[in-house]
Nucleic acid binder design. Structure first.
Length: 981
RNA sequence: GCGCGAGUGGCGGAAUUGGCAGACGCGCAGGAUUCAGGUUCCUGUGCCCGCAAGGGCGUGGGGGUUCAAGUCCCCCCUCGCGCACCA
């Protein structure tokens, strides 16, 4: 199409030529090498180290084998535009790109292709670097580590050691080095088991005690075992329907010994510090929900016939304790087997139940002879339910009576104990007191099983009236009353809640529980500790060895623990849920068995000369490397420290958008919403540990977070329901065909699975990288998802062509820029554009900034038509404004305007206030709220002048003639509105 | 079910504190250039009535507050996302 185009037209070919030239120039000039004020990277050719600092970060990519599509770099382009803009605004901007290269997909890809994960990973990184470089991203090339670099994961292991060698001091509210715990134990601050002084314990007991406090600990606990992947997974990696987030394999709960990180110690701080972060409310909410803090009380219920045996429950409504008429345990609760009665109780339950409900209580299994049999049957029934069924039957309550009774501690009533799957072992204590009158689920269960419902909160009159309910007779209630009300039927000889509202009743009963040693105020969380080991090859080895008594951490001097070269790195996967996890590293016997002379305190098992040990064969999860990569960007070549404290502090300085000091290191973090509770929670946790131990100076890693929207694209499905290659679909008269056969169109996230990916290389070839950058920024607001439309790209491409033509003669290549002055209209437009573009870019509103540049450029096109060329006073600021968005063409124009070097550090233009104000302004004139005319008035004119001008307008005068003006509203400079009868 | 977000021309989208709805781009229509197509440039383009002047309607639907509502309040509908028996 371009064969007969003018020789100097801005075509894809010319764009590519310019882009390659400037990408090479930037490398030569080290244009984006960000200086630190001190340390290893303090060379400062552009003299910017003294400027205020700004850290602009992308969620670093996973180097997958299939290469990029145009949906991937959306966020990278946005941060690049912003970083370039802020460099021009006088900031020293840190912007770099590393690679999250450990983890399951690299290993699976390596397994598929039969090559070592390191080789495929390196190839993939090289491909990705090439594709990203072609976009003109202004990254500091020295600051982009891969998590798989030994020089990087050495520090991942080092951080693990810090976590391992720390404990959480609840009193101080922070983590402290483990040595301080030993001091506290010696000083007797914490009681050892059996109240034995610490120094009287034998070394193994001492070790066990200290290990039980560590932030990284081994636990034998139910974990998510995924035989299909051959590894265990964190809660965050398991979907709501009980499958693996990656691969969609079934996940089973199995008790296994695994490494855990004590993230729960940080639950309150992770929750509280969200308030001061500039994140979207929806992401904060997701984190709050995941942490799931709720406050209430724990209460111990004695079990009838079992002395000294209590069931502990957690409740958020201790004020309803008098109304607890039965108890429910999770089917897998450890006490169930102990307290289940051997025989059903006699038919006469010796209680005040209206009829004999025993048959109903036996639940689904009326024919069972004994409670243990019923428990067994129910457990089988509950385990057989698929998660889908469980969701579908959310309201259908099932359960079974286990033949025994507990004692309600407020009134000594015998209350029956059930097991039911609506009580979950994983939350609270796995047991509840059921108050059917004031809890929806308990109410439904009670109705199903004919259990007594005792109202202990009097509902408000409106609630009762609407339902025709009697406050004292719950049989008249159609549902539980869960609102605020006044307590009733809630008194014994020691305490009375009657007449108190919910909040006060909670306080009074909590005091009574504590005083009588039956319970205490408690906070529980949904958040569990982070399961941190994986049975995979392609991950960071733990810096841990074992002797006969358990794990021992290696000293820092023995880092890194290098991942051994093996040939057999495949995970052991299985369809069999009973298969047990086995790490591929366990097969590397000459690596696993190691002789070391470990220095250290005797109680830790060190210091006995060279001894044989076994290495930990699990590896760390992929999240480990991504938890702290942003810190390494600060000081990537430091071999003495994770990050030089001086360097860390210089980047930690700074303010939020509202001018208050920032609490998060990274000024702007852009990435996908899919990491809302995984990476973003884990990274915050590690950062807080490092803060407590004094290695970083901010309490949070990411001050401002923006989630970019996905790029969507049309996808096509054939009759069999499978996706076909979107780029081979033809459209004929609104119908779509693939290889001659009709297909139907859908829309979805661009990617491999919908077969609708578009490679950036194709767009570079047809339009150039600047066009792609501009198009992705022009499509819509950064946070919104947006449909890709290759046809729409011509709009931004035409803009660049017009821009080029305004500067350069298409036939001769001569510069069309003149030293003549611009006229007043052009100056006004220019300055208004500068003002708007600056504001929009600062707000990440790139689509509107680009629209403004279109307007200015179009106006200049008209100017060029009438001859005379482009005034330099316009050409210079226009080039500067384009530079962050389309940096290659801007550099080329900048050079042609006679400048040396790079435009990167040139100041962004400032508007001249003189040209921002008009001396006259057009004001709409309304009659009864409808615009009927417009009049011009002087800026600053008073209301009377507005009215006079409006009345002088012929059309308005005509409409006002003979009418009575009932009201007249004038907002000077804005509007005039006559209200007439 | 609960929570969060969003509904604006044929399409993507724009509209400080309530103050000219539809900026900018795509598409479409007409014109200039061209043998022609494409490119480039110019003009028009929310819908309806009208030759026009002009008028009416219009931001998911219904109601309200106001001189004035895409924007504020109430009710409802649709879509997207998150959570999902959390005691």
């Amino acid at each position: 199409m371009a064969e007969d185009a003018p020789p100097q037209r801005y075509t894809a070919a010319l764009a590519n030529q310019i882009e390659r030239k400037w990408q090479d120039r930037w490398d030569e000039l080290q244009a984006f090498a960000t200086p630190n004020r001190s340390g290893l990277l303090s060379e400062d050719p552009y003299n910017v180290a003294g400027r205020p600092h700004m850290f602009v970060l992308d969620m670093f990519p996973y180097p997958s084998g299939v290469g990029l599509h145009v949906g991937h770099p959306l966020g990278y382009i946005a941060t690049d535009v912003y970083a370039r803009f802020q460099r021009m605004n006088g900031y020293n901007v840190l912007h770099a790109m590393g690679y999250d290269a450990f983890g399951l997909p690299a290993e699976q890809y390596a397994v598929q292709t039969g090559t070592h994960p390191r080789d495929t990973t390196e190839q993939n990184i090289a491909t990705m670097r090439r594709q990203l470089r072609a976009l003109g991203l202004g990254h500091d090339p020295r600051r982009g580590p891969a998590t798989t670099d030994v020089s990087y994961y050495r520090w991942t292991q080092w951080i693990f050691l810090q976590i391992y060698n720390s404990w959480y001091d609840e009193e101080a509210g922070r983590a402290r080095p483990i040595a301080t715990l030993v001091q506290e134990l010696r000083a007797g601050r914490f009681a050892a088991p059996g109240d034995v002084p610490f120094d009287d314990l034998d070394p193994v007991e001492q070790r066990r005690l200290v290990d039980s406090y560590r932030l990284a600990y081994e636990a034998y606990a139910p974990v998510n075992w995924c035989p299909g992947l051959g590894t265990v997974l964190a809660n965050e990696e398991v979907t709501a329907d009980g499958r693996s987030d990656r691969g969609n394999f079934p996940v089973y709960r199995r008790p296994l010994k695994q490494w855990m990180l004590r993230i729960t110690a940080y639950a309150d701080r992770l929750l509280d510090d969200l308030d001061a972060l500039d994140w979207s409310e929806s992401i904060k909410l997701m984190q709050r929900n995941w942490i799931g803090r709720s406050t209430g009380a724990s209460v111990r219920f004695p079990v009838a016939g079992h002395e000294h045996l209590d069931i502990e429950v957690f409740t958020t409504r201790p004020d309803t304790l008098f109304g607890a008429t039965y108890m429910v345990l999770a089917p897998e609760h450890p006490l169930v087997d102990t307290i289940t009665a051997n025989q059903w109780p006699a038919d006469d339950l010796g209680n005040d139940f209206a009829s004999n409900p025993l048959d109903a209580w036996k639940g689904l299994f009326g024919a069972t002879e004994t409670p243990p049999e019923a428990v067994h049957r129910y457990r089988e029934f509950a385990a057989a339910k698929t998660d889908l069924e469980r969701q579908a039957e959310t309201k259908e309550k099932t359960g079974v009576f286990i033949g025994s009774f507990a004692i309600n501690p407020t009134n000594n009533e015998r209350i029956p104990i059930f097991i039911a799957d609506y009580v979950l072992m994983g939350y609270g204590t796995g047991a509840i007191m059921a108050v059917p009158a004031h809890d929806e689920r308990d109410f439904e269960f009670a109705r199903e099983f004919e259990l007594p419902i005792v109202p202990v909160i009097r509902p408000d009159d409106e609630w009762l009236a609407e339902r025709g309910a009697d406050p004292d007779d719950a049989s008249t209630w159609p549902e539980a009353f869960v609102g605020d009300g006044v307590a009733q039927n809630s008194a014994n000889s020691e305490v009375s809640l009657d007449g108190r509202r919910v909040d006060e009743a909670k306080r009074v009963i909590s005091e009574w529980l504590e005083r009588s040693d039956r319970g205490r105020p408690t906070v529980t969380y949904k958040l569990r500790d982070w399961l941190f080991s994986r049975q995979r090859y392609w991950g960071e080895p733990f810096p841990i060895v074992y002797d006969d008594h358990g794990p021992i951490a290696l000293p820092e001097e023995l880092l890194p623990v290098v991942l051994p070269e093996v040939t057999d790195f495949e995970p052991i996967t299985s369809d069999d849920p009973d298969a047990l996890p086995e790490s591929p590293l366990a097969r590397a016997a000459d690596w696993v068995e190691v002789e070391l002379d470990l220095p250290g305190p005797a109680w830790a098992g060190y210091g006995e000369g060279p001894r044989p040990y076994l290495r930990e064969t699990n590896t760390m999860p992929q999240w480990a490397g991504s938890c702290w990569y942003y810190l390494r960007y600060l000081d990537p070549t430091n071999e003495e420290a994770l990050v030089d404290p001086l360097v860390e502090r210089e980047w930690a300085e700074g303010t939020r958008m509202d001018g208050t000091p920032k609490i998060g290191l990274v000024d702007l973090y852009v990435g996908g919403v899919e990491h809302a509770v995984l990476h973003l929670l884990y990274a915050r946790f590690w950062h807080k540990v490092l803060f407590d131990l004094g290695y970083v100076s901010t309490v949070e890693p990411f001050q401002r977070l923006v989630n970019q929207g996905y790029i969507l694209a049309a996808a096509y499905v054939d009759e069999r329901g499978t996706y076909v290659d979107a780029d081979r679909v033809e459209e004929r008269g609104g119908e779509f065909f693939f290889e001659g056969k009709p297909v139907t169109r859908e829309h979805g996230k661009m990617g491999k699975s919908l077969r609708n990916a578009i490679a950036p290389d194709d767009i570079y070839r047809d339009y150039g990288a600047d066009t792609l950058r501009l198009y992705e920024m022009f499509m819509g607001p950064l946070e919104k998802e947006r449909p890709w439309s290759t046809a729409d790209i011509v709009g931004v491409h035409r803009f660049l062509q017009r821009l080029w033509r305004n500067f350069v003669d298409e036939e001769t290549g001569e510069l069309r820029v003149t030293d003549l002055h611009a006229d007043d209209d052009t100056r006004r437009l220019l300055n208004r554009t500068i003002d708007a573009v600056g504001t929009d870019m600062a707000a990440l509103s790139f689509n509107t900034a680009i629209a403004r540049l279109f307007e200015l450029n179009n106006a200049l096109t008209g100017l060029g038509q009438s001859g005379g060329g482009l005034p330099r006073e316009v050409a210079v600021p226009l080039t500067l404004m384009v530079a962050p968005l389309a940096p290659h063409i801007a550099e080329e124009l900048w050079a042609r305007l006679g400048h040396d070097g790079t435009i990167t550090y040139e100041p962004f233009p400032e508007p001249d206030p003189q040209w921002l104000v008009d001396d006259r302004v057009e004001v709409p004139v309304q009659i009864n709220g409808k615009v009927r005319a417009r009049v011009e008035v002087a800026v600053g004119a008073d209301a009377a002048a507005h009215e006079a001008a409006a009345r002088a307008e012929p059309r308005i005068a005509e409409m006002l003639e003979g009418a009575t003006v009932e009201n007249l509203k004038i907002v000077t400079g804005k509007i005039v509105n006559f209200v007439i009868a």
